[in-house]
Design a protein around this nucleic acid. Sequence first.
RNA 1: GGGUGUGUAGCUCAGGUGGUUAGAGCGUUACGUUGACAUCGUAGAGGUCACAAGUUCGAGUCUUGUCACACCCACCA
Length: 877
Amino acid sequence: MLDKNYNPQDWEEKIYKHWEENGCFRPSMDKTKDPFCIVIPPANVTGVLHMGHALDYTLQDILIRYNRMRGKNVLWQVGTDHAGIATQMVVERNLAKQGISRHDLGREKFIETVWKWREESGGTICRQLRRLGASCDWSRERFTMDEGLSRAVRKIFVNMYKDGLIYKAKKLVNWDAKFMTAVSDLEVIQKEAMGKMYYYRYPIEGEKGNFVQIATTRPETMFGDTAVAISKDNEKLKHLIGKNCIIPIIDRVIPIIADDHADPEKGTGAVKITPAHDFNDFEVGKRHNLPLINVLNPDATLNENTPFAGMTTAQAREATIAKMDELGLMDKIEDHPMVIPYGDRSGVVIEPMMTDQWFVDAPKLAVEAIKKVEDGEVEFLPKTYEKTYFEWMRNIQPWCISRQLWWGHQMPIWYGPDEHIFCEENEEEAKAAAKDFYGHEVELRRETDVLDTWFSSGLWAFSTLGWPDKTEFLDTFYPTSVLVTGFDIIFFWVARMMMMSLYAMKKIPFNTVYLHGLVRDEHGHKMSKSKGNTVNPIEMIDTYGSDALRFFMAAMETQGRDINMSEARVAGYRNFATKLWNAARFGEMNEIDFAAELDEKEVSGQINRWIIAKAKVMTKEVSRNLDNFRFSDAANAVYQFVWGDFCDWYIEMSKPVLYGEDGKAKAETKAVFAWVLRRIMIVLHPFMPFITTQIWNDLGLGKGELMLHEWCKDEAIDVSAQKSVDWVIEVVSQIRSLRSEMNLPVGAKLKAYLQGADVAKGYLADMSKIICALARLEFLQISEEEATKDMVKVVTSDGVVLLSLQGVIDFAAERERLAKELAALEKNLQAYEAKLNNPAFVERAPEKIVAEEKRRRQEALDKKQKIEDSLNKIKDL
RNA sequence: GGGUGUGUAGCUCAGGUGGUUAGAGCGUUACGUUGACAUCGUAGAGGUCACAAGUUCGAGUCUUGUCACACCCACCA
C-alpha cells in the first residue's frame, strides 16, 4: 500500500541499504554479455559532496543503471583520492589550531595523523554518494594510497624511470612558498591585478654619469640579476651592448648583452635579466651562459645573497626602492596592469625557483595520446573539447611530478653515498641494485619527495582493476566504456590518464569521454564558499528527495554546457515525483492487479492501444537519447510521457471506463494501466531509482525483485490508434478552450452534434462517453442536421462539432472570438498562398513539402469557410 | 595575443542533418476542490529568436561581419 503522501525521506535510504546488502551493484561477470564499465572520478577522500559531484555521479549512475538493465555486465568502479596538497593543508590547519606544526610531529607522526584523520572524516563523501543513489560496487572500493594502488604507482614509476621517461633535473619550477613545494603549471592560476612598474637606473661601469634605464615590476629581484639585455635592433640603446653596468646597492658588475627578448617597444627597451627567478630570463640566461643567482629562501623571503635577507618580497621591494631613491637612481613609478601567478590551493604568489625536481617526459608520452584521439579511437563529447585537448597536448611541457610534501606516494628512489640514483620498487631491491653497483653493501638514503596526486590518479583506469596483476576484472573491463567528468579537469586528469594508460597498458583507457560543465548558481555565477552562493546537494535531497535532484541534473544536462542551479526546478521535479506517486495510487485505488500479464495483441480499446504505442515510442526515444548521451532529451521524453500522455490524458480518459459498467473494457483498461505503469517504472528507473523501486515493490510490479533490472527489447509499435485519440484530444481541448473564452458557466452542460467527421464515426461509440466526460458535455452524437442559430461550431481536423449553447451563449463574445480566429486564419492563409504562388518553391522544394503545404492551405480554407458560416449565422442575433 | 562557447518569453533554459502557427519549467492572469494528485487541474497572456548583410523556394538553425558576455591557453621586463 502506498502512503497517501510522497515522502521520499521515509524510504530512500532504506532502499539503498537493501540494494547494497544484496549485492545489486556487483557486476554479473557473465561472459556472454557485453561488459560496461565506468571508473568513477575519485573524489577527495576527506571531501564533501558538492553540486559538481552530484551532477557527475548522477550522469554516471544513469548510464550505469541503464546499461545494467540492458543486461550488460556492468561495473562502476568506485574509489577516493588522497588529494595530496589539499589534504595535507587541512590537517596542517587543524594542527595549527593546537599550535602544532607538522615539523613538530615529524614526518612519520604527521602521516599517521593524516591517516587517522582520513579514518575519521573519510567516509563522508561515500555516505553522501549513497544518498544520491549511486549504484557503484562498494565491495571494490579503492583508495589511491591503498596497498595495491601504491604498488601500481611504484611499478609504473620504476618502469618509466628505467625507460627514461622520468628524470631528475635542476630547473626553474613554480614554487609554492606556503607549502614549500614545487607545483605543476596547471596548479598555477594567473590573476590580473593592478601592479606597479618601477623605472630606475643602473650606472654604466667606468662611465660616470652614464646609465642604463630599466623598467621592472619586481625591483627586489635585482640582486639576482646577472645581465641587462638590449635588442641588437634597438637603435637608441644598442651602443650600450657589450659594456658592463653595476647593480646598485650591492655594486655587482654585470654585462649588457644583446638579446631579442628585450623588445625595444616595451618598457625602456633594456631588461634586467634574473635567470633564477623568471622563466623568460632563464631562457636568456641559457642562451648567454649567465650564472644563476638565487635570491629567495624556500618561504619566499629574501636570502643572504641580498642585503635584505629575511624580508618578505613586499618588504624587500619597499626597501629596494627606498634605497634606490636614496642613491638618486629611482626615476618613476607607474601603475601597470599585470598578471600575477597564484597557487590554486595555497593562494599565495608562486615564485619561479631553481630547484632539483623530478619530471615526466610528457612531450614524448603525448604523441600516442594525441594520435588515439585523432584516429577516433577515443572520442570526446562534446566533440569541441578534442580541440582543447589537442591544443594543450601539442604544446605540453615536461610534467613536474615531485612535491616537497609528506602526504602522498613517496618516490621509489634511493641515493647511494655518492648520490647515485637507484630506482626500484622497494628498499630491498634498491639495496640489491646498490650492492651490484658498488660491489658491496651501502647505506641508502630515500628520496623524501612525494608524487603529484595526479600521478596516481592517472593510473586510475587500470590500477583500480587490479594492475599490475593480471586480473579477471582488468581483462573484462579494460578499456573502460566511458569516462564522465568535468571539462575543467581535461588536462589534470583526462590527458594524464591517456598518457599513463597508453604507456602501461598499450591500450586506450576508455572509448568515450563525456565532459559536462560546471554547476553554477541560479544566475550563472560560479559557486564558491566565499561568495556564499553554494547549494548543498544533501540539503536538496533532504528537502526534495534524491530522485528530484537527480532528475534535475539529467534534465538540465545538454551537450556539456554549464548548468544553473535552480531550487524551483528541483522542486518542480519533486512535484513530478508526487504526480507519479499519485498516479500509482490511483491504480491501487482502482484495485488493479499489477502482477497480471498483458497480451498486447488482445488489446482492442483505442485509448489502450494508443497509450501502449506512446509508451513504446517514448521508450525508444529514451534509449536512443541515452545511447547518444543526450540526457536532457531522454529525461524530457519520459517526463512528458508521464505527466502529459499518461496522467493528463490516459488516466482521465480511462476514468469513464473504470467507473463504468462494461466489465470487459474495464478489465482491459486495468491490465493496460498496469502495463504502462510498469513501463514507466522501468524507463524512469535510471533517472529516479528510488521512487520507481518503491512503487515497483509496493505494488508488486516486479514480483518480489529487489531492483529493476530489465530494459525493454526492441518492439513493434502499433500506431493505428494514434489518429483517433489525437482527434479526441483535439476536440476536448478545443471545447475546453471555447468554454473558457466564451466564459461559459462551469457547470453548463452542453449538447454536441458531430458532423462530417469521417474518421471519428468509426469509433465514436468508444469515444463519445470519454469526450463528454472530459469536455463536460451532456451528450455527443452524430447528426447531419442543419445547425441552429444558438449553436457554435468547433472545427476540428476531422469534421465539425456543433455545440448547442441554448441559454448560455454570449453572442457578442462569440462574434469577437470568431473574428479573431478568422483574422489569424487569414494571415496563415496568405502565407500559404504566397508560398504556393512562388514558382521557385513549387519547382524546387521537395514534393512532399509542397503537398504538405497544399494540404495545409486546403485545411485552412475549409476552416475559414466553416467559421464564416458560423459568423453569418450569429450576425443577426 | 590565440582559442572555445554563449546571446531565444519576466527569470532559467531546450530547440542533432534548414521545412506546420518557435517549445519547457518557474513566475504571471482568470477560473476551478469534477470520485490519484492544490506538491493539483483547465484556459490564457507573454517572443521583430542580440544586430547587419549574405546563401536559399524557405534561416532560430548555414556563411560572413558587428556588438555584448563567459570561459580556456599563452604572454606583457
